[in-house]
Simulated scan of single mutants.
Amino acid sequence: MTSSISAWIWSERFWLPENVSWADLAHPPPGVEYPRMGQILYALPLAVGVFLLRLLFERLVAKPCAHILQIQAGVPRRAQPNAVLEKLYQSKTCPDTRQLEGLSKQLDWDVRKIQRWFRVRRNQDRPSTQKKFCENLEKLQTYPLLIHSCICSLQSPWMWDTRQCWHKYPFQPLSPGQYNHYLAELAFYWSLMFSQFTDIKRKDFVVMLIHHLATIILITFSYANNMLRAGTLVMCVHDASDIFLEAAKLANYAKYQRLCDGLFVVFSISFFLTRLVIFPFCVLFESWEIVGPYQAWWLFNGLLLVLQTLHIIWFYLITRIAIKAIFKGKVSLVIFCLTFTSVTAKFTFFVKHLNNYWMDSDSV
């Protein structure tokens, strides 16, 4: 029964293009290696190590840094102990008018006094600025490893001529850099799954839990069916802008407003270039043209299309924040335009230079 379930889960008709079998990938040509599912399992113990390293980093590095920057933990005002209000608070932090009136009669308290109690109780549960600073610094210290993996991947010609992501798919050799990149990314997202239950519990807890789980599934199964080139490109596209967002948050908590504004401008521009320009054209459109759709293609690209929809929504929110900041005088419009022009020009020159480099290499 177990073998039949495994055969159903790993159906060749679903995961692979026509006329390709798992046996084809299990027996690569001499000197060539294809991904094997067992290789990616090493990400689990590595994720545990990353999680423990984050806990150690918070104690030995993040908190001392917060003290040096004079980011205090702060002790919030505590609400008056009340068993009835506490019981309701555990199920509903903002009671409606009917509930407030019922509590007013039951406790013989004024409605305003009850509203004040719930406000103080909500503030009591809010994390301190120091706690948020430490969490963001923990995440930021993991990004150099991911950025290093991205830089190693940038040396591959298919990162710049993205049509090569699909040439001869799925018979594409596995390189050590691709394996290390996948292992690092999967360990990182598994560690985020673990840390969600120890970090500050935010309003988007369930959404982020689903996001991390979906990301883990995408990374695991894209490794299994050798969609590594496109997968590495997608991961690089996402990591490129995230590091600036985390850095901007840290600057905001430390009250370095100008640094925060500058980092947010860079984040906005990099988000636009990577997630609204590179991502859809290189991943969604070219795969249709070269490989053509098959069952797993619809699954992966359907999930990536949902992700692209989120990118558009997030960029809309980012634009709103940027416009509000400009009109409030927090960010100079001239600085924003100059930064946008400079970063875009450098990005275009960099891509053009590398494209010429790979074309010259191919001609040789």
Rank of each mutant, 00 (worst) to 15 (best):
W158D: 12
S11I: 00
C236R: 01
S195G: 05
Q130N: 03
I243S: 11
D96G: 14
G31S: 07
L338Q: 08
I318Y: 09
K105S: 10
V50G: 02
K132H: 11
P76L: 04
L307R: 06
I278R: 14
Y294M: 04
E12K: 10
I290L: 13
S270D: 09
E12R: 04
A296M: 02
L146K: 04
W15F: 14
A47I: 00
S11C: 05
V50H: 06
F133L: 10
G102W: 11
D161N: 10
Q115K: 15
A79K: 06
T162I: 04
N136I: 00
V50L: 15
Q196R: 13
I151S: 02
K105G: 02
L55E: 13
A187C: 00
K131L: 14
Y143M: 14
R229C: 04
E289W: 15
P30A: 13
R163L: 06
V291Y: 04
N355W: 03
C260M: 13
Q106N: 07
K87D: 15
H212S: 10
T274S: 15
A296D: 09
T274I: 01
D24K: 07
V207A: 13
Y169P: 09
F336N: 02
Y223C: 02
S104L: 11
L69V: 03
T2R: 09
N123P: 02
Q130M: 13
V364H: 09
K352C: 01
K352E: 03
A26Y: 00
I200W: 09
D199L: 06
L46F: 12
V206N: 10
Y316E: 03
V306Y: 13
I326L: 08
L284V: 13
H27S: 14
G231S: 12
W158T: 03
I312E: 07
N225L: 04
A26S: 06
G38E: 11
I217T: 10
W288F: 14
G329N: 08
L55Y: 11
S191D: 05
P30Q: 09
R258T: 01
W15Q: 01
